[in-house]
Design a protein around this nucleic acid. Sequence first.
RNA 1: AACUCCGUGGUGUAACGGUAGCACAACAGAUUUUGGUUCUGUUUGUCAAGGUUCGAAUCCUUGCGGGGUUGCCA
Length: 557
Amino acid sequence: MSVPPPPSKDFIREIIDEDLASGKHAGTVTRFPPEPNGYLHLGHAKSICLNFGIAEEYGGRCHLRFDDTNPIKEEIEYVDSIQEDIRWLGFDWGGHLYFASDYFEQLYEWAIHLIQEGKAYVDEQSAEAIRRTRGDLQSPGTASPWRDRPVDESQALFVQMRAGEFADGEKVLRAKIDMAHPNLNMRDPVLYRILRADHHRTGDKWCIYPMYDFTHGQSDALEHITHSLCTLEFENHRPLYDWFLENLPVPSHPRQIEFSRLNLNYTVMSKRKLLQLVTEGHVSGWDDPRLPTLRGIRRRGYPPEAIRAFCKTIGITKFQSTNDIALLENAVREVLNREAPRYMAVLDPIRVVLTNYPEDQVEEMEAVINPEKPEDGTRLVPFSRELYIEREDFMEDPPKKFFRLSPGREVRLRSGYFIRCDEVIKDDAGEIVELRCTYDPTTRGGENPADGRKVKATIHWVSAAHAIDAEIRLYDRLFRSETPDRAEGSFLDHLNPDSLQILTGAKLESNLAKVAPGETVQFERLGYFCADIDSTATALVFNRTVGLRDAWAKAKG
RNA sequence: AACUCCGUGGUGUAACGGUAGCACAACAGAUUUUGGUUCUGUUUGUCAAGGUUCGAAUCCUUGCGGGGUUGCCA
């Protein structure tokens, strides 16, 4: 009847559509170009979803290319971890794995080409002098005394640079563009620097390394990338990107398009700050579940599918926005609600004795594994005379809106029985240590009794004799400030001291013993929990991935 | 006060000169063997001022606000 509106596309996909329609390109080739100097985080995930997503949608391909032009900062360990993280996210580059370092020889030849064209020269000024003569935002720069040296001289010097005849930093190769250009990147940018450092792929073959600007666009061109998508901070580099492609005999001319990077509230995303959190021990490592690193959120139990859905909903624009972490958590809950098997776990136990339940009897209660997926079937949960329930689920003197257990009141034990609280037993300190209750045998499985009696709450439980112990790690946002980056003082001043709470007395349904590390399940009424990689059969550890929505917590403030 | 990019509910994101829509959040209700899920409803928005036009979030001008740029990092 009504025609659904065409799905709206972001501005990048619209550009691609136009380029395909106009015949500018026959297909689409994108690339994800990480520098192997750190672990991937959610910001990278946005870029990965964009680049690999476009490749999938348009039947094109997406290359994985390591931008490895700075051997001082880069390590093979990161090359491996980055690939692992991209695969985990659910993307595949097929055979298209590249390294900018594979193009070093070609880039060198192109540098020679520029020199011969009179568009590049060897500068002998110090780094400090180059900085000083670049001018500033208001005033133009001044020319290097070496700017107009003969072509042959520059070429000879550049060859000597490569041959290792000069010390680190002694000379650089610069493009000869315009020292008065309003865009500082165009004021004779450095193309090559002398750097004696072992490169993770080329070893000590080179002692000169090309700069990012001289590498990235040409690498794109060599790979016939059609659309080179990057974040906004490279906007000012685009004229230079194009200048190289226009002045070099490259096989293609990709188009650079910039989009806004991902910002999330209550966290930090910059590599530098994440590194600081790790090295200074504010978190346990790169895979700390509180971190927005892909390794962190994986350990936390976030499914890759949820990350992809999240990236889809935040979209792609040029506007610098800060996304609400609730959007991410919603995506996580949506996937987990659909997929996660349910179990019962009591985090803060209080003992319940069913005074009218036979002393040695044990029943196997049948419980649904996932109400969203009846086909997943049921599990058996042991029930006996002594149980644990959540301390929070009992109140001696309940307020009006509290529906759970209290003296004289009846509740349903999920998949168990109705129970009524008859007596509260306290220790000398007045702390509640035990609840004496009676169960209604006619409500087996939690069924409503024939007399039409209703109950306002259903609570979770575990059988005391069958329960297994586990360590539970409750995670909260790492920062108290919504924008730790912009808040007063150092971002570290705004760390949330309660971002990790470790519970050791939790009692779990015995079925949980078989949950494998990395698997995420729901603890009914509490939230989603992921068996930690530290978890073993004898010492179970669960991380709280995210809590369930909690209307009661909200109501009581 | 150089160059450049960007301003749509609380947060994101659509509308390509023709009814400002969607998601999340918030709030209210219904359903419920998870105070979960699901369903229904409500609140809140085009940075400002001019101009063009029958008609402007959209085009033009000016202003205001925010970001980026002065590495031999990427």
